[in-house]
Nucleic acid binder design. Structure first.
Lengths: 333, 333
DNA sequence: ATGAAAGCGCTAACAA
DNA sequence: TTGTTAGCGCTTTCAT
């Protein structure tokens, strides 16, 4: 593969001039610059990234470490990140942590080795990995979940408030026993949504009972089981708040199996809007999160840090909103 | 950030020894190796990726360029790729081409600059970008769609056959006028599915008519419109084959708006299985594609090329299969 | 405005 | 077994 000195030779100039010309430095004779461009094109020259990165001691790549590329919430975030990063000339590498601290560490390690310019992290809850970043002075911004004991920029969704609102909505619709199906303990969003659920239960004077709460992975399979346990309990809830859209799939499967019609027999509200939510019968009420914006804002924050901003660490909290549909409306056909 | 010579100094050895120890070369005195590891740990040393890549003239990263991270079919592929790449010590960078040749080129360019070890590409249909790869001798494998005029490894799904089978299935169920909604002309999978549809129509002796065919983007919005045009036409089809799961969302929305019940009023079969397909009423019949395997096989092929295999270019064609559910069954409640 | 040359951090000959 | 040393390809002083 052609190197800069091949180009220099062909254009009859020094490598320094080639570098200057190709990088658009002001001080290059137009005639020489033209020769350089021609030579580069003829040779199909492409600057060697690693060499440049080594020399400049910086790269134009951002690492985005999320739990799961198959979760639409995270892919929407990825879009947001990519759009703003790309506009600023940065590339994004996507990594799946699967919510395993070990994988998370591994990816952070790679990011550090490759000397990425910054990291966007949706932390598993493990604090150890963060120290890594800290120690190496690589800018980080936390996405969707806060970083433990750290003062870095953070972009969150106020899902606690949204969860409380969902419970209020259930109460308004006349549901009397509201349950909650949330994610693993220790995962901040899972705990927040549960806390919001409790806020709502308390505010509306609905009955409180630990028997109305279940936890599972943020996936369909676990949620299906948990929902079964919840909905076949002696004092089963007449409504349930589900903490994520993949879990919603499991819950709805269970409802179908038990012959429980959403809305009529059991109210259902799930976090995350999905294109198929309106196709269901009845359509699914959701808490829509501004996922794309979460990503976009986070990327902006990170880019700011990379370019040396030294302000206090900020936390941006975006808000989610309830989209009421028939799965949480009793008075339906 | 600590460098290899910092570690060398601290351990009281040369940089060469540090390098050897850290890379697990056989010939290092255990005692020295221990000192090296200790020093590295104390300093939080992390080898400089760009420097190593420059020196070794190779990187352990694969680029995966797909149309859309928000399409579950592609994210499943990504999982397959990542799992095998990771097991072999490679990282994967994911890029969205949005099916735009320009973005595709841009990402290929970046991949080339960064000297990735290989590229997995789901081509937009533009051949120009392929020449780039070719010229730079970077191994490529085509995923889901073949590369134009090139002899590189390819992993496909036999969606033409599957489409024909879907039409046969419609015929078996007593549908008489089967339509087809496929993707943009020029996108190979879109054209293949259409061809398969035609094969099926011909084989079953169903009526042929260009008026039963529509095209749109591989997304919900376009498909919704196209479906409307198709289903409100004077001689509307009584069944429709949909070329992808995002389009299926649009089609089903249109059905709902027109008061057409899938299965009873209009048979529906869509490509790609989705977790929510069974939640619909009636459940959606799909052509399930082995997306994860596509990714896994492609990554294996690529890794083979990277390690210097010189065999003939192979094309692996995996098969899809119909999962019959009620949206294509007339005899339902 | 251009060129010569140093050096980013690492690995791999080659010597010892 | 260990150390010395020469680059990988690039950008960037420093001279000119």
């Amino acid at each position: 593969m052609a190197t800069i000195s091949d180009v220099a030779t062909r254009a009859g100039v020094s490598t320094a001039t080639v570098s200057r010309a190709l990088n658009g430095k002001s001080t290059v004779d137009p005639a020489l610059a033209a020769r350089v461009f021609a030579a580069a094109a003829e040779l199909g020259y492409r600057p060697n990234g690693p060499a440049r990165n080594l020399r400049k001691q910086e790269t134009a790549v951002l690492a985005l470490i999320i739990a799961d590329v198959e979760n639409p919430f995270f892919t929407a975030i990825a879009r947001g990140v990519e759009d703003v990063a790309h506009a600023a000339g940065y590339s994004v590498v996507l990594c799946n942590s699967d919510d395993e601290p070990e994988k998370e560490r591994e990816y952070i390690d790679v990011a550090l080795q490759e000397r990425v310019a910054g990291v966007l992290l949706s932390p598993t809850g493990d604090s150890e990995s963060v120290e890594l970043l800290d120690r190496h002075a690589t800018p980080v911004v936390a996405v969707d979940r806060p970083l433990p004991n750290t003062t870095s920029d953070t972009v969150l969704v106020d899902s606690r408030l949204a969860a409380a609102e969902a419970v209020q909505h259930f109460a308004d619709q006349g549901y009397r026993r509201v349950g909650c199906l949330t994610g693993p303990s220790g995962v901040r969003t899972a705990d927040d949504r549960l806390a919001g659920y409790r806020d709502g239960v308390e505010a509306t004077g609905l009955p409180v009972s630990e028997e109305l709460v279940r936890r599972s992975e943020f996936k369909a399979a676990g949620a299906k089981q948990a929902a079964h346990s919840l909905l076949t309990a002696p004092d089963r809830p007449d409504a349930v708040l589900v903490a994520n859209n993949m879990m919603a799939v499991g819950v709805l499967e269970t409802c179908a199996e038990l012959g429980l019609r959403p809305g009529r027999d059991v109210g259902v509200v799930a976090f995350d809007d999905a294109p198929w939510a309106t196709l269901l019968d009845p359509p699914l009420t959701v808490v829509a999160q501004p996922a794309y914006d979460v990503g976009a804002v986070a990327a902006q924050l990170l880019l700011g840090r990379i370019s040396g901003e030294r302000a206090e660490a900020t936390t941006k909290t975006l808000s989610a909103h309830l989209v009421a549909r028939a799965s949480s409306t009793r008075q339906q056909a």
